[in-house]
Design a binder for these strands. Structure first.
Lengths: 305, 305
DNA sequence: GGTGATTGTTCCATTGGTCGAACAATCTGA
DNA sequence: TCAGATTGTTCGACCAATGGAACAATCACC
């Protein structure tokens, strides 16, 4: 396609940097002054301008050692140089303001139980602290595609498919215990050992990786409770409500049940026994250079848990 | 003043080139495609983008090996990148159009006689050929300061003060002869030798470097004619008119008198004798990278003489 | 499900641009 | 008129940015 090299020196590709340097020289009125402002040796400035003129094919300024006079061409080019400098400055400002104060849209995704039971106030607090951030909360239970749906941060439990493109930070470890309402226990009796659970109505979590049974452990001892459950649901929150209503014994994260425990609406059953702990992770795309908004939210999240 | 190095990586100075590369990548939707369009190895593109993100302090795009997704920040920055690319393109176009077709303001300075007697049509022809050029003609007799007054081209005679900032090109050699009207010669007689000039009315040029006499030469012979002149003027054109009106014998450039010679309004006096030839120079600021407009005018000038 | 093609990233030898000093030209002040 | 100060340019040693190949990861197609 390119059968002949250009006859004249070269239109080539002109370096926007050179235009910026030229604008600085023209505005400063001197190579030396411009070099100081730019933090460059004057030799570089001189070479750059000469090269730029070569590229453009016409002189930009006539230089005596004492005075600079812009060519008519130089005047026209100066306008572009200045516009360019302004545009770069705008970009720089954008980056800086972002770094200083979180801003933009922040999409977070997490299980609805998690949000409802633990982060009630956090969203409001975050929004008040960072008014420039538009907060979008997605409580859909499915594991959203972080990259595809532009989600900035998601909270996930248990196993992490170690995606090389995702980074994760551990939020906290959730311990699980068995809970029931005092009325239920008064009616059906309080279990003394795991074997007693067979006599009870078990409310079981229906989850993706659900094993279909309870794996209880106390110290070295382990017990697998396989008795069929009359009610199964995929929402810890619903199980919590059912247990509180006296529907049976539910396995719940201790943190979820804490308020009801305090108010006496629930009691810990078989307090020496617990289910395998799960770790809650904050997952976000990109290992480094996290946006300020994400960083801020993450910090608040860790402080809250 | 700068007591502490910036805590975060570095706002430093961001390279506009990187923004251009980023815009190209974002628009192309792939590093490889962008690299091809830019004529760069993809490794450079990758490194450049990474560095830019480092500088900006936030990621611009999330890259799986198969798909690129712009960050919200990236979207915002892309606008600036595009604006920048457009501005650079504008500058490039300006330079190219200038190189292709002369344009802008062209100031030329020359003696009025020269313009009136020799370049009558040239100005009109040039203007017609290059409509984008605004022609400014300065006929002031003084030697204008080319750089100070933004004059693109001047025509000067004889000695050139070799200014290192000015370049000159020889236009043509002007030979001088003595001329008088037939009527005058009929009345006062035709000189046969230089000595006869003493009996005649000599019309002498009043110039800066004027010697106050005529230095005539024919082959090896030389004659200095010091006889006082009844009329002196600093305009060859006026001397020409005076000679034509029968006021006396004038020394004129042969080229100036050619039309009147043809029409029989003037006759060459002492045709074997002539005055020292002068060279006409075109002088212009800047040795290299002449504007296209100047180059075009210069070529037309040389063709006309 | 496996294999080949294609993506973006990393590595390191090489080169092109940079830095600082010396230089020539010019203006300023005594 | 002359010397000192300041301008932009030139020159050479050096360093950093570049370019090509190898790499790991992913998708598409059979």
């Amino acid at each position: 396609m390119e059968q002949s090299p250009p006859k004249h020196p070269n239109p080539e590709q002109l370096d926007p940097n050179d235009l910026l340097i030229f604008a600085r020289v023209a505005d400063a009125g001197s190579f030396t002054a411009a070099a100081e402002q730019l933090g460059l040796p004057k030799s570089s400035v001189s070479r750059r301008i000469s090269l730029l003129e070569e590229r453009l094919g016409e002189r930009l300024m006539l230089r005596t050692t004492r005075r600079l006079t812009l060519t008519e061409f130089g005047e026209a080019m100066l306008e572009h140089g200045r516009a360019l400098a302004e545009e770069v400055e705008l970009a720089r400002t954008l980056a800086e303001s972002r770094r200083a104060q979180p801003s933009g849209r922040l999409r977070v995704s997490m299980p609805s139980d998690f949000a409802n039971l633990l982060l009630g106030d956090l969203f409001a607090a975050f929004s008040a602290l960072h008014p420039a951030v538009m907060l979008e909360i997605d409580l859909s239970p499915r594991r959203v595609d972080l990259l595809g749906e532009r989600v900035d941060l998601a909270i996930r439990f248990g196993d992490l498919p170690d995606d090389s493109l995702l980074a994760a930070r551990r939020l906290r470890r959730f311990t699980w215990g068995l809970y029931a309402a005092p009325d239920y226990l008064a009616e059906h009796g309080t279990p003394r050992s795991p074997e007693d659970l067979k006599q009870h109505r078990c409310l079981r979590l229906l989850d993706e990786g659900a094993t279909g049974h309870w794996q209880l452990s106390a110290g070295e001892q382990t017990h697998h409770e396989h008795s069929p459950a009359p009610i199964q649901a995929n929402s810890p929150e619903l199980l919590l409500r059912l247990a509180r209503a006296g529907a049976g014994i539910a396995a719940l994260p201790d943190q979820f049940a804490a308020p009801q425990l305090t108010r006496g609406e629930l009691r810990r059953v078989l307090p020496d026994w617990s289910l395998p702990a799960q770790t809650a992770w904050a997952v976000f795309p990109g290992r480094r250079l996290l946006p300020a908004k994400t960083r801020a939210f993450l910090e608040m999240l860790q402080a809250a848990l």
